[in-house]
Design a protein around this nucleic acid. Structure first.
Lengths: 339, 339
DNA sequence: CATCATTTTGCATAGGTGTGCAAAACGAAC
DNA sequence: GTTCGTTTTGCACACCTATGCAAAATGATG
């Protein structure tokens, strides 16, 4: 015998009270007597009643759903962030609805449509190029947006990033201090602000020390592109002795290519530095020197930002920058070894 | 000027038709004339109208939301599956609502409550020990459940797994053919059917060849546990010359420990085999021999199973097993080298 | 033009919940 | 017991959409 859906009316009937009484018992802060609350709770438990979030959303205008837009999950930074975001939001009574948007342009537009269809209370966009039109539409619909680990110029969008310029600068300084002579950069996608910032911070720090990168190649955040880039670099007449890679995900491909395709030793022949400090970077197989993006803090900031904007729509968008340290590991020469 | 939510009534007013007409235009297969459809679509576009999925769900009983329950995302198998599941479901007009359930018992119960609150149309449970109570409650609520990469005895739950016994058996046979003398197993969590099946398939294949494993240790699906296990194994008076690890995630920790903590060579000193064939396994840094779990096929099967049960609630639960090949890589001695 | 079959449209209601408002219950003070 | 202030409760409606039903429109046929 398959149960029909049990509603607040069923509970009300069993408890011998009105439907609104049931509603109030399940609404924190509503006016209910202890006696009534007990009656209702007993009836609800015996029927297995739980309020229907979707019906509730109709009337409160709060779906308790946060849309998460993400492109790929093969870069460990994102599943890691997703897990933390989901846990943080779960604790606040929200849940994450996942939207994959690998492409750009029309595909992203379709995703936005679907986001609006589900009446999400807010949007977290990670790792995806969002058109300005997105900002426009979400703003018009009154849905707060937080860009996670992705910058954007539009002032209506909040964002949380690490201090990419400072991080890249620290990398440059460390490589110089390590006595490296020919320093190259395989950058993150040059179409992304994150990629640009890291590249610019890195190059400007080199210049401040009177140096120039021997090469800057766009790695597109893709393993194969990074792998090809490092092959090209090492085929130069005077190959680099240090490479800063735009994120860990690409850096792992660079390490593999250097060691196993080109037969080189890291850091003896080349030092390699990444960005993100995903858990993998600490594994001995990579032992990658990298800039930590403190995902805990970034998640916390993103969630707070979103919650504030949901509670008070007048709240204006903010652009937060979180500092992260350079983590020294075995993929770069220790500074003592400087010649 | 912040827009109020635009409803089908607004569209109807602008187009000079009834609300039901608008609804019909957005309901595939409803009876509408071409003229009317055009009028409505124009009005809808100019207002930026899109049907409210949540309000629709009230009346159709279909939320177009699938709940995904998952414990951790640090084992790459799961983000990979999540991405594929999300894409497959997105193509069918569904989206994934994420529920993290690291713990067991009461925490899982809370998750079930929340799943029901959101009126999900179906549930995919990956990597979590679900009590029989789950089956009970979801069955009562009429919500189909598919266990992904996780077995369960309850006949009411559908499940999709790879052929864990056959896969483990193939590993055993390959290790024997490779001339290994002392074969050990670091198993998946012995509380999971998946872990048990792999262990049993492996051990029974050894016995069929007149062999016994030198040791079987529970690795709990955790890196640290696996790392400790391999240290214990290699500290034995006669350490193993081959280790089958219950999944790739643990196998990576085993490789790191063997190479960098114990200074051993793989596969010269010890052969290592994993299970899953996550993308990482093919990276040169690991080059791990492993049993492939064809996540594409598993996802496809899981989605089909779920869709069938959603469309026809009378459809009975199925337990599907997908075959996966042993992928030979550099972490095991080639069979030609057998002495 | 009349008739009828068919398609299209509007009306009205349902789906499950929260909330403003007024009525009812309660409790205190005289 | 009466009065008044406070808390609790129920009534009725709103939120946004889909759909059964009957009325209207359309088109084909005689």
């Amino acid at each position: 015998m398959r149960d029909r859906k049990v509603t607040s009316l069923d509970v009300a009937a069993l408890a011998g009270v009105s439907q609104s009484a049931v509603s109030r018992v399940f609404t924190p802060g509503a006016s209910v007597s202890e006696k009534m609350a007990k009656k209702v709770r007993d009836a609800a438990n015996s029927l297995g009643y739980r309020p229907n979030v979707l019906a509730r959303s109709l009337i409160t205008g709060q779906s308790k759903i946060i849309g998460l837009v993400v492109a790929y999950l093969d870069n460990q930074f994102y599943p890691d962030a997703l897990e933390k975001l989901s846990n943080a939001l779960q604790a606040k009574g929200y849940h994450i609805l996942v939207f994959m948007a690998s492409g750009t342009g029309p595909e992203v537009d379709r995703v936005i449509d679907e986001l609006l269809d589900y009446q999400v209370d807010g949007i977290i966009a990670a790792s995806v190029g969002l058109s300005d039109e997105l900002a426009q539409r979400c703003d018009a619909a009154g849905i707060p947006v937080v860009l996670f680990n992705r910058g954007q110029t539009d002032a209506r969008l909040s964002q949380v990033t690490s201090d990419n310029r400072a991080g890249a600068r620290a990398v440059a300084e460390h490589l110089i201090a390590g006595g490296h002579e020919r320093i190259a950069h395989i950058s993150g996608w040059s179409g992304s602000l994150t990629g640009q910032d890291r590249a610019e911070g890195f190059v400007s720090a080199l210049r401040d020390a009177g140096r120039e990168p021997v090469a800057v190649i766009d790695g597109m955040y893709r393993r194969e592109a990074a792998s090809q880039a490092v092959r090209d670099l090492m085929a130069m007449p005077e190959p680099p002795d240090a490479i800063f890679v735009g994120n860990d995900h690409m850096a792992f491909a660079v390490l593999d290519t250097l060691r196993f395709d080109l037969g080189l030793s890291v850091p003896n022949d080349v030092s390699v530095v990444g960005y993100d400090d995903v858990p993998l970077a600490a594994w001995k197989a990579f032992d990658l020197t990298t800039v930590r993006q403190p995902s805990n803090k970034m998640v916390e900031a993103a969630v707070n930002l979103l919650m504030n904007q949901i509670e008070d729509p007048a709240e204006l968008a903010q652009k937060l920058t979180i500092e992260g340290p350079l983590i020294l590991r075995g993929s770069t020469r220790p500074v003592e070894d400087a010649r």
